[in-house]
């Protein structure tokens, strides 16, 4: 069966068999792109009901409810985010994939970004694409056809393309001497401080039926009011959580402190509850692993990167 996997900057095609597992397909993808920091990533597909779903690596690909088309379509995406890109990401390819994915999320308004930060990020993305600004090469209008700013920023501030270009160009010139790879890292170092960066939002309710957001991210769980995804009202670091479970629509978070009361919330969509739990487990596992000594493999990767 023909399969197409799109990464942020490549399109790969494979032929798989009925016995091919998600893990085997995943391993072919990471081998092809040269990625070793695989723990952040997964394969997404659209199921027959139209929902975006993560491929289960332990199961056969064709036994999962992938929308029937030729070839079968998958997207290779980051599922988990580092707590700090500067300290954690080792390979250039990892930084590049994160840079492209995060940039797309910001430009599509999936992650809110205020105008000044948007222009700053745009200047780094221009440095990452073009390298140093030179007057002879980068003549007036050099950014006209580039997708550089979130749609919301373009709509709220009625500047012309030239006016936006002028602002971005000033900072592009300032980045002179910065390697393209370093510009991608600088982009991520700024983007990771955005309130919505790396947060997975889910609809939940409290006991009296108030609709709220549950945010699951690298540091823990947060609860937001429905009209404000930026300001968490309640937070639970992973270090304080002993266990999370659900039964039907009721979730229970048990604290490590056994004297403290359990925390209960309600997630109205059963289909989503397994996904919430898996994201919690994955983020928790990475949180704990980060606080242990580097594995031999990671030590080797870091040594190679230094060389």
């Amino acid at each position: 069966v023909n399969v197409r996997v799109t990464t942020m900057d490549a399109e790969l095609e494979f032929a798989i068999q009925s016995v091919t597992t998600g893990k085997q397909l995943f391993e072919q993808v990471v081998k092809t792109v040269g990625l070793r920091e695989v723990w952040y990533f997964g394969l997404q597909y659209v199921d027959n009901k139209g929902y975006l779903t993560w491929l289960k690596l332990e199961k056969k690909v064709l036994s999962q409810d992938v929308r029937r088309e030729t070839p079968l379509q998958f997207m290779f995406r980051a599922k988990y985010f580092p707590e700090d890109v500067d300290n954690e990401l080792i390979q250039d390819i990892t930084r590049k994939l994160f840079f492209l994915q995060v940039k797309d999320e910001i430009l599509s308004d999936n992650v809110y970004c205020p105008p000044e930060t948007a222009v700053l990020l745009a200047s780094y993305s221009v440095q990452a694409k073009y390298g140093d600004h030179t007057k002879e090469v980068h003549k007036s209008g050099y950014l006209t056809s580039e997708r550089l700013l979130p749609q919301r920023v373009l709509e709220q501030h009625k500047l012309s393309k030239d006016q936006w270009e002028d602002r971005i160009q000033v900072w592009h010139e300032e980045h002179s001497g910065m390697l393209k790879e370093d510009a991608m890292l600088e982009y991520l170092k700024i983007a990771q401080d955005l309130e919505m960066y790396g947060v997975n939002y889910f609809d939940i309710k409290n006991k009296k039926g108030t609709e709220l957001w549950l945010g699951v991210d690298a540091l823990g769980l947060n609860i937001y009011e429905k009209d404000d995804k930026l300001t968490p009202k309640i937070g639970f670091p992973w270090s304080e959580i002993r266990n999370i479970s659900f039964n039907d629509k009721k979730f229970v978070i048990k604290p490590i402190d056994k004297k403290a009361p359990d925390f209960v919330f309600y997630a109205p969509r059963l289909r989503i509850n397994k996904r919430i739990l898996l994201l919690c487990m994955g983020n928790h596992e990475l949180y704990m692993q980060r606080r242990k000594p580097d594995t031999i493999e990671v030590q080797q990767m870091k040594a190679q990167a230094r060389e």
Binding site: E116, T117, V119, L120, W171, I190, Q192, D193, L194, E195, N206, K207, K208, T210, L212, L219, N222, I223, E225, L230, T231, P232, K233, I234, G235, F236, E240, P255, D257, A260, P261, F263, V264, F265
Partner: peptide, 30 residues
């Protein structure tokens, strides 16, 4: 300066500190 202003947003990602009892209380009042 623009980078510094952007960096200050990091503290917005943390909820106010409170114990588990207070978290349940605040949650039920939302």
């Amino acid at each position: 300066q623009a980078k510094e202003r952007a960096h200050q947003k990091r503290s917005n990602k943390k909820a106010p500190p409170m114990d588990w009892s207070k978290r349940s209380e605040v949650f039920s009042n939302l």
